[in-house]
C-alpha cells in the first residue's frame, strides 16, 4: 500500500465513490492509476481490449462511433465528476466505441483484471461498485433513447 495514499484521495474526492466505506476504497485504490490525455488524443478505440474503466477528474471526453465514409459520430460526452467504460464487466471485454479527449483530460483509470480479482475475494465490494455503476448506465441509456426520438425535430407530418 505504498503508493495508494495519493490515489485514495483522488478517488475520495470523485462523486462516483461518494460515501464508500474507507476500507473498500483503499482496496479499490490499489487498482487505480492516474492518467493524462492531451486534446484530440484517443483514450481507447472500439474493438480493443476493455481492461479499464475511467473516472474523469478534469476535462471532457467524447464517446464516438466510427462509421466508414462518415464523420466521427459523437454519441455522448463525459465530464468532470463522471465515469465511462463498462465493457470490462461484460464479455467479451472489448470496447464498443472510441473515447477521445476533447481537451486536456486528467483521468483515473481502474484496472479491470485487478478489480475482478478483488471482487472474487470480496463479493460485497463487487456489489457496492455495481450499485454505483448501474444508475450511471441507466441514465446513459435513458439519455440515448431521448436522443434517438429526435424530440426537437420537425413534427412527423413535416418530415
Amino acid at each position: 500500500m505504498v503508493k495508494t495514499g495519493g490515489m485514495y484521495d483522488l478517488l475520495a474526492e470523485h462523486p462516483f465513490f461518494a460515501g464508500m466505506d474507507k476500507g473498500r476504497m483503499e482496496v479499490v485504490a490499489g487498482c487505480a492509476m492516474n492518467e493524462r490525455f492531451e486534446a484530440g488524443q484517443y483514450i481507447f478505440h472500439e474493438g480493443e481490449s476493455a481492461d479499464k474503466f475511467y473516472l474523469v477528474r478534469h476535462g471532457m471526453v467524447a464517446l464516438e462511433f466510427h462509421v466508414p465514409g462518415r464523420e466521427q459520430t459523437v454519441l455522448d460526452t463525459v465530464h468532470k465528476g463522471e465515469i465511462f467504460g463498462w465493457s470490462w464487466m461484460v464479455s467479451p471485454y472489448t470496447w464498443s466505441f472510441d473515447a477521445r479527449a476533447v481537451e486536456l483530460c486528467r483521468l483515473v483509470s481502474l484496472d479491470a483484471k485487478c478489480l475482478r480479482g478483488k471482487f472474487d475475494a470480496d463479493n460485497s465490494l463487487g456489489y457496492d461498485l455495481l450499485r454505483r455503476f448501474i444508475p450511471v448506465m441507466a441514465e446513459r441509456l435513458s439519455a440515448a433513447r431521448m436522443q434517438m426520438i429526435d424530440m426537437y425535430g420537425q413534427p412527423p407530418d413535416r418530415k
Binding site: E71, V74, D76, T77, Q147, D150
Partner: peptide, 13 residues
Amino acid sequence: DRATGRWAGPVGV
C-alpha cells in the same frame, strides 16, 4: 443531441 461539424461542446441531453 447530435454533434456535427466542429462542435466541441457537450453531446447528450
